[in-house]
Design a protein around this nucleic acid. Sequence first.
DNA 1: GAATTAACTGAACATATGTTCAGATCAAAG
DNA 2: CTTTGATCTGAACATATGTTCAGTTAATTC
Lengths: 195, 195
Amino acid sequence: MARTQGSHSDITGPRVREAALRLFAQNGYAAVSMRQIAGEVGVQAGALYNYTPDKQSLLFDLLRGHMDDLLQARAACAQPDDPLAALEQFTRFHIRFHHDRPEAVFVSYMELRNLTPENFEIIEGLRRCYEDQLEDILRRGVTEGRFDVAEPKIAAMAVIAMLTGVNTWFRDEGRLSLPEVEEIYWGMVRKAVAA
Amino acid sequence: MARTQGSHSDITGPRVREAALRLFAQNGYAAVSMRQIAGEVGVQAGALYNYTPDKQSLLFDLLRGHMDDLLQARAACAQPDDPLAALEQFTRFHIRFHHDRPEAVFVSYMELRNLTPENFEIIEGLRRCYEDQLEDILRRGVTEGRFDVAEPKIAAMAVIAMLTGVNTWFRDEGRLSLPEVEEIYWGMVRKAVAA
DNA sequence: GAATTAACTGAACATATGTTCAGATCAAAG
DNA sequence: CTTTGATCTGAACATATGTTCAGTTAATTC
């Protein structure tokens, strides 16, 4: 049972996923070859198959891992009883979480169609689970008379689309800091659903 | 000068673009081969090169055509002086226009990274031109004291992201009609920027 | 130092890719 | 009917693809 400690496997495995994520984000899943990924890691293409059964699983594992991270990070948040506080919490969490991993966000959105149907269903289920959390907040706010939202499901989709959009233009070196952007978006979200 | 009238070219040319658009939307630019496109048209791969110098130009022409359509359709709209009316007009126009051509919208968003840098710059310029129109409406509304928007550029990006998001979930056979969806989104946009 | 075995190489496999081009086809013009 | 030229075929080109696998390398254990 040699090679358990200091094994390259602990190093190479993550590096494969990192290289795949970066390349998929930059060029798209279909446009990236296993040889490119291997080259980025400094290894021959065949060696990748010690870490993934095939290219499809590599993509799926990235998306799956991202969605797991999202739901886990979300679950670790305090969940205020007050709907307004919960909505603010969700808004700021979403912007921050997505800002911190732009490549995973991008790939998770762009490469859904390159998943096999079964894999797609799994990712889609996790995504729906996240969306439902926002929908629940909105419904509670409506019930308590704090929000004026005729269609909580649609409002949830609209808010998430708006918030995720930050990733398309925000730059760390830009004029505005992330907390400032958070503030601006929270203002719009709050007003958009206000009673 | 034979073959000018009733020429197949008038038929095949558009069919090539239609097939390419449909296939690019479904499978992504990189995953679609010239032979697939040709097969869809009922022709051999070599024949496609009577209608496009290469695959890249085929993609570019689709995106270019879509952006031209967008700006032209927008220019054909009445442009109300009243900022609130102008914003409502923009909101409804955006939802309707994007609803009517989901494939072109999808491809225009997803395949930007598969453009050469020069082609990308052109499309990006057209896109900015469209965004600026919304930004101008918001600025005018602020000047006239009708809107409360600290960052018109960012608000414009947020509104557009929100509106374009309709395409990701809306189905014609769904519970809500497009006019109903228009109404819901217009309500959220109006409140989000209201003074 | 010998044995073990995880980690990796390098070549091979069958198939697919974008693009080119000489030649066949055939509708229209003279 | 003959000429013309746009339209398309079918094969070829060089290169790239995902994946497999027998064999090499080298870190660890005994």
